[in-house]
Design a protein around this nucleic acid. Structure first.
Lengths: 157, 157
DNA sequence: AAAAAACATTTTCATATGAAAATATTCCAA
DNA sequence: TTGGAATATTTTCATATGAAAATGTTTTTT
């Protein structure tokens, strides 16, 4: 019997660990929204609008990790349902600001308790302290990677 | 000035934190493979084959978080390039086992040092202890979520 | 042992995706 | 002030995706 091909182990490989957790979370998360009639991507947009207020298509794209081309389509669909509204600022007419409308706020208000409950449920395997540490490490990693990409794709506003 | 709409904060919301790290990792990771001529999905397949040996399409799909329909296509493409080989076991002919070929092993051998270097680079924001804790927490969360889904989608082999 | 149910994979088909091109606006340099 | 370079968004178009149907196999009933 030969030795293992390498000293590399998937179960301790950071990108693999993150990817499979991300996939599982997205799967379990998706079903939460069917009832309210929004897609996961739409929740992402609404939650970012809720957190940071009106912002450009580009900022939305960066903050949600959705590409600009897709963001155009997602916002288009949300606009026809009166969840959000596009407006071109007089100051800089090449940007498009997206603003949440009342119907969007109503959806957010309905979803927030659900997602809080969801987070609570999935994090039941952690102590409160562990959860805090975990979030901090995720946050630190994100900012570290993002800084690596240097000035490319800076967030405005 | 009105109070914030809610006591909910995206920057401390676990699914958001995981999703944005996952997206960034996949982005940065993708470019590593262009040189070697494989796609991210193909690395995922090869690394899982490297770790767990020959296995069915279904196991591959679950372990890589790739859907069966897509897995059929990914394996098809890898087969024509002689990275892997399909075989129907006599014992159970409704399954299809996938086995790595020499060309696949050569790709893995080339990629592993690269991905180790990549992991090292992105985790430079952590101490060794933090990194271990982080991985353990990711692992724990995954297994906890997966157990929640109960018996659905069990891994064979 | 035949019929039905369960299982594993592949195919079909309608939709989603993103890279690159097109469009539109603003900034900057001469 | 004008002509490009830079920026922001949208559109086009070729490809990727996954749900559900189709196919083929095994297991369980009866």
């Amino acid at each position: 019997m030969a030795a293992p091909p390498d000293e590399f182990h998937l179960e301790r490989f950071l990108p693999y660990l993150v990817h499979r957790v991300g996939s599982r979370l997205a799967d379990g998360f998706g079903v939460e929204f069917d009832a309210v009639g929004v897609h996961l991507q739409e929740w992402r947009v609404l939650s970012v609008l809720n957190e940071y207020g009106p912002q450009t298509m580009g900022d939305l794209a960066r903050r949600t990790s959705i590409t600009p081309a897709t963001m155009t389509r997602v916002i288009g669909a949300m606009e026809t349902r009166n969840l959000v509204k596009r407006e071109r600022p007089v100051a800089n007419q090449r940007t498009v600001f997206v603003r949440m409308l009342d119907d969007g706020r109503a959806v957010v208000a309905k979803l927030i308790p659900q997602v809080i409950e969801y987070e609570l449920r999935i994090s039941s395997c952690f102590t409160a302290a562990e959860l805090q540490i975990f979030k901090s490490l995720l946050s630190r990693l994100f900012h570290s990677i993002t800084a690596d990409e240097e000035d490319a794709g800076r967030l405005a506003g």
